[in-house]
Amino acid sequence: MMSPENMQAFRRDALGLLARAKPARLAELLPVSPDHELLRAPEIGTVMVRGRAGGTGAAFNLGEMTVTRASIRLTGSGTVGHGYVQGRDKDHARRAALADALAQDNPSRIEADILTPLRSEEAARRAASASEAARTRVEFFTLVRGEDE
């Protein structure tokens, strides 16, 4: 069993990965939904995104983003899961909540089946983008002119 602190860190990481995953990819990784009841049917709403003046200063409201959330309870274990995902895909939010509940019941299985693939695909996506960016990094060279020998 994980300690409560470890479980919280694990769920935090998992819920982030689930939220950032493409809905279709999560559907591939979690094709079958175990029996569950909806505690909160998938609901589309917004979250106000905040920034800071000067990047580090006073918080201000930048604008909203669409977010969909859902909460479920697994019929077998009674474990409750919550999903909060960017965008308006209700199935994505329900699946994220399911994965959150399953991850509490069986962390190693969900880690292997869902989270590890999502993590490595995300790392590859980021590396590809960073590599594109690095290609556009400027290499300066200096022209020496007019100086005395």
């Binding site: 917004t46 979250v47 990047g55």
Partner: peptide, 13 residues
Amino acid sequence: LPRFGASLPVDTA
């Protein structure tokens, strides 16, 4: 749309 809440300030660094 209903508003679920506000985010933590984004970390642009």
